[in-house]
């Protein structure tokens, strides 16, 4: 109970502090805003410059690189998607599986080459994303509901939940690789002899289980934080009015936890779309487990420019998914990060 009371008390004081600031601000609002703006700029610019150097510069570099490949090749214009600017052949290589044969002509990529794997890898990436996030949401919600209850030993539960989260993904991959080994514990306990990483279905299942194990706790904690922002008196009032447990869940918990839930799902989706460590270590991308990130890394070793195009495509895919989430599904991470969601709920 004290864990719940703690943050709530803090919220209270933070709110009053904000209220106090507002009062002071109104006195000399204009001047204060100006000086605050100036010092804010000074404080924030260094971070933005660093981020520009480590993110923006490489991204722009990647886009330039992606346009430089195969300058001599005459692109089959007309079939291209956006734009129409020169040197999109690298993108066509991935999107339309166009390769160049030794004579210089454009042919469709022979099966087995990296170029032929793009749509497969995209499908695998989305498959992993949808399936893992689905299970993580269901399991995470259930875990959060249990963790939100007041019972003795709750801190043990919360501590245990953090263990999978703290283990590095590379170690997680090796651990589950061992658990799913042919002579491993899963086959022993189930009395089966499945080559888990040897064929498509089991390999994907193994990766999904490992990912769900590793990341559900994060989901659960985000949902739990959302649950704890729901004031208890709403439940009391509903109880008095005779609402059943299911009604309370459906009509109070779900709608009120939705902002936090959507942000949690957004975070997990974006994270799952760049999944690399688990499949790279558990299967090396074999047996239908090559994600987009693995394809990029494989391509880096062959050619920078096609890799740059592919990484740009990957980035765009993730960006579009994030955009859809924020625009149409109402996952507003920025607003809730700046305290907006809290205001809305209360």
């Amino acid at each position: 109970m004290s864990a719940q009371a703690g943050p709530d008390a803090k919220h209270g004081s933070a709110n009053s502090a904000r209220g106090g600031n507002k009062g002071i601000k109104e006195v000399g609002a204009d001047r204060k805003e100006k000086t605050q703006g100036r010092s804010a700029t000074l404080l924030i610019v260094p971070t933005m410059v660093v981020l520009a150097v480590v993110i923006l510069y490489p991204v722009i570099n990647a886009i330039i690189m992606s346009l430089e490949h195969d300058q001599g090749l005459d692109p089959v214009t007309g079939t291209f998607v956006a734009g129409g600017f020169a040197g999109l052949s690298n993108y066509a290589h991935w999107l339309f599986q166009q390769c160049t044969d030794p004579s210089g002509a454009t042919v469709s990529c022979p099966p087995g080459t990296l170029g032929a794997q793009f749509w497969g890898a995209t499908g695998v990436t989305f498959f992993f994303t949808v399936v893992t996030v689905f299970f993580e949401t269901i399991l995470g919600f259930w875990m959060a509901l249990i963790m939100a209850r007041a019972f003795r030993g709750r801190s043990v539960l919360r501590a245990a939940v953090l263990v999978p989260w703290a283990i590095p993904t590379a170690v997680t991959a090796k651990l589950w690789f061992f658990i799913f080994a042919f002579d491993g514990i899963v086959n022993t306990v189930l009395n089966t002899s499945i080559l888990w990483t040897g064929s498509e279905g089991p390999a994907r299942a193994a990766i999904i289980i490992a990912d769900v194990w590793k990341t559900t706790p994060f989901m659960a904690l985000l949902i739990l934080a959302g649950l704890q922002m729901i004031p208890a008196d709403i439940y009391e009032a509903a109880k008095v009015d005779g609402a059943s447990t299911w009604q309370r869940f459906k009509l109070i918990t779900l709608p009120l936890v939705k902002p936090a839930l959507m942000v949690a799902i957004l975070f997990r989706v974006l994270d799952a779309l760049r999944m690399y460590d688990l499949p790279a270590i558990m299967t090396g991308g074999a047996n239908g487990t090559t994600t987009l990130s693995i394809l990029v890394v494989n391509q880096i070793r062959i050619g920078f420019n096609s890799a740059a195009a592919l990484s740009t495509i990957t980035f765009l895919i993730i960006f579009i998914v994030a955009f859809i989430f924020v625009r149409f599904l109402g996952a507003n991470a920025v607003e809730s990060a700046s305290g907006g969601a809290k205001g809305k709920i209360k």
Partner: peptide, 9 residues
């Protein structure tokens, strides 16, 4: 941000 997007350049 996806790590692969910056790792190539």
């Amino acid at each position: 941000f996806p790590g692969v997007a910056i790792v190539t350049p």
